[in-house]
Design a protein around this nucleic acid. Structure first.
Length: 497
RNA sequence: GCCCCCAUCGUCUAGAGGCCUAGGACACCACCCUUUCAAGGUGGAGAUCGCGGGUUCGAAUCCCGCUGGGGGUACCA
């Protein structure tokens, strides 16, 4: 293959969302193309009208774009190339490598059932392969539209060379005559993919290992046409987290776009997927450029790997916390805040004050965000006048009394009324001094203030939060908390008395 | 059932005959840091390299068998 320009393709069928398994195959293929400066071609294998899902092509394209896997050619649609496949099928018939089959699905089913009943392996009995001209004419006279089957050799072996597994030998007698052109005029994968891969000049056929058992068919079909074999690379499948079977829709978020929606970074997904079955030493974090530079098909681990939601989540958080910049993170968070109605369209303009404010909020969350979507839940109180409602009990930490907390909040308000909100250290010093005067530990004072200002017990650092929320809203929220607490104290007294 | 592929900590993996008292990462546990939650730091537990035979002075690394797991067995891809 040296001297030949690398041309590879990703060829999904539009039967649903692009899921992470397909995305990884696409990624490996794309990385290989980019590493060699070759071409990455996109082809839609829409030859099964019954399984076609409306809108899935758009979803697949969006998924690939989001992941940054830009294609150089296509998308080609097999449904638009029917004449080509028919021509090729007829050529095989003409040269004696294929034949029309008039068997109905019912008969095929019946044959299989009988074989099973007799304890034989189920398979096509090749009736139509041995039809006499008269019998054939009789079927034609009935007006039956035949499917076309490929003639597999009935003895001997077929060897499939695979880049990751070496040469695999199959017994021909155990293989069937596959339908290559259906009676509806559409080709099956076996014909369409081989014809397209040849016509499109594909040098390396990367595909899931579920294709390995039919690879000898493909080798024979290619040889029947007199073409050169491409390099076959059967990629390992991705298993469910528990290892019991292939990863599928039932196992949780499996669609690429679901991860986009959930606030995952495409970089993180790409990095995670690249490491599932491939590695380059002990390192784990690779930029797109590094992946391209280091990637090699030969280094793919041929054993199937389990998908780990945990590790992907860690990778995503790592990218948010350590890899991308604050400016970048801000820009990526804004669509989520917009969707939640927390910021206006103006925030999208990096020069706007609102954008700057979002940036100051996001800065406090950078080490705490696991996904972009979390930014909404974690920061809502920065974008509203007051906080969400909370029970008064939340203001009273363990081992403190409501009355004491009330006094603490009263005095906190007095301090913050005149404090410099830009001076975090100053506020902290003043409030630490107050805690000491009240005989409280720092945390016992900080928690009620946190709850008053944020409406919750978990938040970014207290003083940076105060700085960003600002004096006006802080004092108003302290007043709400104090009123809440006063009512709570009164109610307790009434209950006691 | 039959055919094919695969096999290192729970998981993803490093390892291409001596560098391995098997390394890293996630998850887990402890401690440190600490105003909450994270992040970060330090340490720990965790794999007789699925089992059994070979080959070799020497095997996680090569060969064979077994077992286990996965995939396929459609006029679906």
């Amino acid at each position: 293959m040296t001297g030949t320009r690398v041309r590879v393709r990703f060829a999904p069928s539009p039967t649903g969302d692009l899921h992470v398994g397909g995305a990884r195959s696409a990624l490996f293929t794309w990385l290989f193309a980019r590493h060699h400066g070759g071409d990455f071609i996109l082809r839609i294998e829409d030859t099964d009208r019954r399984r076609y899902v409306e809108g899935s092509v758009e979803g697949i394209l969006e998924s690939l774009r989001w992941l940054g896997l830009e294609w150089d050619e296509g998308p080609y649609f097999q449904s638009e190339r029917l004449a080509i496949y028919r021509e090729h099928a007829e050529r095989l018939v003409a040269q004696g490598d294929a034949y029309p089959c008039y068997c109905t699905p019912e008969r095929l089913e019946q044959v299989r059932n009988e074989q099973r009943a007799r304890g034989e392996p189920p398979g096509y009995d090749r009736r139509c392969r041995h039809l006499s001209p008269d019998e054939r004419a009789a079927f034609e006279a009935q007006g039956l539209t035949p499917a076309i089957r490929f003639k597999m050799p009935e003895s001997g072996t077929t060897v499939v060379p695979d880049l990751l597994r070496g040469h695999i030998t199959f017994e021909n007698r155990l293989l069937e005559d596959p339908v290559i052109l259906k009676s509806d005029g559409f080709p099956t994968y076996h014909l369409a993919a081989m014809v397209d891969d040849h016509l499109m000049g594909i040098t390396h056929v990367t595909r899931g290992e579920e294709w390995l058992p039919s690879a000898p068919l493909h080798v024979r079909i290619i040889q029947a046409f007199g073409w050169d074999l491409p390099v076959f690379v059967h990629l390992p499948v991705i298993l469910r987290p528990d290892g019991k079977g292939k990863l599928s829709k039932r196992d949780g978020a499996v669609g690429v776009l679901e991860y986009k929606k959930a606030g995952y970074l495409p970089e993180a997904l790409v990095n995670y997927l690249a490491l599932l079955g491939w590695s380059a030493g002990d390192r784990e974090i690779f930029s797109r450029e590094e992946l391209i530079r280091l990637f090699s098909l030969e280094d793919i681990n041929p054993s199937p790997a389990r998908f780990s939601f945990d590790k992907l989540a860690w990778m995503n958080q790592y990218y948010i916390n350590h890899i991308i910049s604050l400016d970048d993170l801000t820009i990526r968070c804004i669509p989520f805040l917009r969707a939640a109605g927390l910021v206006s369209a103006a925030a999208e303009d990096p020069a706007s004050p609102e954008h700057a404010y979002v940036r100051s909020v996001v800065a406090l969350l950078k080490d705490r965000l696991k996904t972009l979507a979390e930014v909404v839940e974690l920061t809502s109180f920065f974008f509203t006048e007051g906080t969400e409602d909370y029970p008064a009990e939340l203001l009273v930490p363990k081992k403190t009394e409501p009355a004491l907390v009330l006094e603490a909040l009263d005095r906190t308000r007095a301090i913050l009324e005149t404090a410099d909100f830009a001076d975090e250290a100053g506020m902290e010093a003043a409030l630490r001094a107050l805690a000491e005067q009240l005989g409280l530990k720092a945390g016992q004072l900080f928690m009620p203030i946190r709850v008053a200002v944020t409406g919750r017990t978990v938040s970014p650092g207290l003083f940076e939060t105060l700085r960003v929320v600002g004096r006006t809203r802080t004092l108003a929220r302290l007043d709400v908390a104090r009123a809440k607490l006063r009512a709570y104290v009164a109610q307790q007294a009434a209950a006691a008395g």
